[in-house]
């Protein structure tokens, strides 16, 4: 699958990513600096004010990432390289998107139900296991977690309608 030519297409160059991340840093440092200037970033008579350190941290971050940004503006051969080939990127997204859905599902269905679905999905779709192999594992893991956290250690984890129906 990976050796089909269209799978190795150019996605994003390294340079774009470098500039993107350095840009994020710059943006963040501006936010940090502005908020800490607001609460006071001077050296008062009894030492630094609340915003003093964070302000200068922001400033150093601004300088460092601006330099990184400028350095990466010039296109060198290393920078022109593809950041990640199309096939591996797809692989990463195949994990990342379900994980993001899983995280979102936790707040609705609770962590136990969400985990069951997530593990089953992962095994069946990505691992190509038959469903009858995936189901026991997908059910067992959350059950073990449930016993350990809710029953044994008395640590409540996020729960959904199913647990509520069962009286938890």
């Amino acid at each position: 699958m990976a050796d089909r030519p269209e799978d190795n297409q150019h996605t994003l160059s390294r340079q774009v990513l470098e500039l993107f991340v350095a840009g994020l840093f710059i943006l963040l440092s501006l936010v940090v600096m502005s908020d800490n200037w607001r609460i006071g970033a001077r050296w008062a008579s009894d030492g630094p004010e609340a915003g003093y350190f964070p302000f200068y941290i922001g400033l150093i971050m601004l300088v460092a990432s601006t330099i990184t940004f400028l350095v990466n503006l010039r296109r060198t051969p290393a920078l022109a390289e593809t950041f990640v080939e199309r096939a591996p990127l797809m692989q990463v997204l195949w994990v990342f998107i379900p994980t993001a859905v899983f995280v979102a599902a936790i707040s609705v269905a609770g962590i136990y139900v969400a985990s069951t679905l997530f593990i089953a999905f992962f095994m069946v779709v990505l691992g190509r296991y038959p469903i009858w192999k995936a189901i026991p594992i997908a059910v067992l893991v959350p059950v073990v977690l449930f016993m350990m956290f809710e029953v044994w250690f008395l640590v409540p984890l996020p729960k959904g309608p199913l647990e509520a129906a069962l009286g938890y």
Partner: peptide
């Protein structure tokens, strides 16, 4: 990996 990875991710979330 396709068994352990989702379990690790679940444990990370917990």
């Amino acid at each position: 990996f396709s068994i352990i990875a989702p379990i690790i991710l679940v444990i990370c979330a917990v």
